[in-house]
Deep mutational scan, measured.
Amino acid sequence: IEEVKKIVSEIQSKQLTRITINGNTYQVNSPEELVEYVRKVFS
């Protein structure tokens, strides 16, 4: 979970619009959307 928080804060600070998780690239339009992807991947 700490690793996830680190990734999320990194993305928020860079305002990235794409994230790659487990080889899948997602278009991310908002931090909320990012959190949803993270929940799916780590749930």
Rank of each mutant, 00 (worst) to 15 (best):
I1E: 13
T20E: 07
S9R: 13
N24M: 14
S30C: 07
V28C: 15
E2N: 09
L34H: 00
G23S: 03
E3M: 13
V4K: 03
E10L: 13
E32T: 06
T25A: 07
E32R: 05
Y26E: 01
S9K: 14
P31F: 12
E33D: 07
N29V: 06
N22P: 00
S43P: 07
N29D: 12
P31E: 01
V41N: 06
V4Y: 14
L34P: 00
I7R: 02
L16W: 05
I1V: 10
Q15Y: 04
E36T: 03
Y37E: 09
Q27D: 09
K5E: 15
S13L: 13
Y37K: 11
N24R: 14
Y26S: 01
S13R: 12
I1W: 14
E10W: 11
Q15W: 03
V28R: 15
G23Y: 02
R39C: 14
I11A: 02
V8E: 04
E32M: 06
I21N: 00
E3S: 11
T20A: 05
Q12I: 15
Q27Y: 08
L34R: 00
Q15D: 04
R39T: 12
I11D: 01
I19M: 06
N24Q: 13
I11G: 01
P31G: 01
E3H: 12
S30T: 12
V4F: 15
F42P: 01
T17E: 01
K6Q: 09
V41R: 04
Q12V: 14
L16N: 01
V38L: 11
L34W: 04
T25R: 04
S30I: 06
R39N: 11
S13Q: 12
V8H: 01
Q12W: 13
G23W: 08
S43W: 10
I7H: 04
V41Q: 07
I19N: 00
Y26M: 09
N22C: 14
I7T: 03
E36S: 05
R39Q: 11
E33F: 04
V8G: 01
G23V: 02
R18N: 07
T17V: 08
Q15E: 06
T25K: 04
E3T: 12
I21A: 00
I7K: 03
Y37N: 03
S43N: 11
V4C: 15
P31M: 09
N24P: 00
L16S: 02
E32G: 06
E33I: 03
E36Q: 06
K5G: 11
E10R: 15
V28D: 12
E36V: 05
R18K: 12
Y37T: 13
S9F: 14
G23N: 06
E32L: 06
Q15L: 09
Q27E: 13
K14A: 06
V41H: 13
I19W: 04
R39E: 13
I11Q: 01
I21H: 02
I7E: 02
V38P: 00
S30Q: 03
T25C: 15
V4G: 03
I7F: 06
T20F: 05
T20M: 08
S13W: 07
N24Y: 13
E3P: 05
K5S: 13
Q12P: 02
R39M: 14
E3A: 12
Q12K: 11
T25E: 08
P31K: 02
I21S: 00
E36W: 06
K5F: 12
V35C: 12
F42Y: 11
K14I: 04
V38H: 01
Q15S: 09
K5N: 14
I7M: 08
K6F: 10
R39L: 15
E2W: 09
K40A: 10
V41I: 15
F42Q: 03
R18A: 12
S43I: 11
K14Q: 09
S13I: 12
I1Q: 12
S30N: 05
Q27W: 08
I19V: 06
S43Q: 13
E2A: 09
R39F: 10
K6N: 09
T17L: 08
K40L: 13
V4A: 09
I19S: 00
K5Q: 14
Y26K: 05
E36F: 04
S13N: 11
F42M: 11
K40T: 08
N24I: 15
I11E: 01
S9V: 10
F42S: 03
G23P: 10
T17F: 09
I21K: 00
G23K: 02
N29S: 12
I21R: 01
R18D: 02
E3W: 15
L16D: 01
N24A: 11
E10G: 03
E36P: 00
E10P: 02
G23H: 04
N24K: 13
V4S: 04
S30E: 03
E10Q: 08
V28S: 15
N22E: 05
N24V: 15
V38A: 01
G23E: 04
V38N: 00
V4T: 04
E2T: 08
Y37V: 15
K40Q: 11
E36M: 05
I19K: 00
R39V: 10
K6G: 05
R39H: 10
K14T: 08
E2K: 07
K40S: 10
E10T: 07
V4P: 04
T25P: 04
T25I: 11
L16E: 03
I19Y: 07
I1A: 12
F42K: 02
F42A: 04
Q12F: 14
E32W: 07
I1T: 12
E33G: 07
L34T: 00
F42T: 04
K5R: 13
E33N: 07
V41S: 05
Q12D: 03
I11C: 03
L16I: 05
V8Q: 03
Q12L: 15
I21V: 05
S13V: 09
V28N: 11
F42G: 02
S30K: 04
E2Y: 06
V38T: 01
K40P: 03
K40H: 10
G23C: 09
S13G: 07
T17C: 11
V4W: 14
V28M: 15
F42I: 07
S13T: 11
Q27H: 07
R18M: 11
Y26W: 14
E10I: 13
K5A: 14
E10C: 14
E32C: 07
